[in-house]
């Protein structure tokens, strides 16, 4: 195996995540899309860690840190989404519209 397929997978995942985060209407899907973007970076890190000129474990350790951080981020995200849902009774991006310009 070479490095390129992994980087391509990462790029595709990042692209799908970014597209989803910017266009999807359901806030839960938006959060999942953001998670995909973070995981794209993790795939990159692990791939680089294995295929580097001098392979080292730094990238894999970095990826482990990121997994923990992403979990914290999504937990906070869902909590805020829940408090928004209680007030507005909606999880649609189009209802996040009290403040504009």
């Amino acid at each position: 195996m070479a490095l390129q397929p992994f980087l391509a997978l990462g790029a595709i995942l990042f692209g799908i995540g970014l597209y989803g985060a910017l266009t999807k209407r359901n806030l839960i899907i938006v959060l999942i899309s953001v998670e995909m973007m973070l995981n794209a970076a993790n795939i990159n890190l692990v791939a680089f860690s294995h295929f580097a000129v001098t392979p080292n474990v730094d990238g894999q350790v970095y990826a482990l840190f990121n997994i923990a951080i992403a979990a914290a981020e999504v937990a906070v995200g869902l909590a805020i989404l829940l408090s928004f849902f209680r007030i507005r009774n909606s999880s649609d991006v189009r209802d996040v519209n009290l403040m504009k310009w």
């Binding site: 959060l31 794209a40 990159n44 989404l81 928004f84």
Partner: peptide, 24 residues
């Protein structure tokens, strides 16, 4: 709640961009 939600989504996208850049 709305401000928090906006900040969360935009901020996480920014974090993901930074992380993706740092991975390269």
């Amino acid at each position: 709640a709305e401000g928090g939600l906006k900040y969360l989504i935009i901020g996480s996208i920014a974090s993901a961009c930074i992380l993706y850049g740092l991975s390269f």
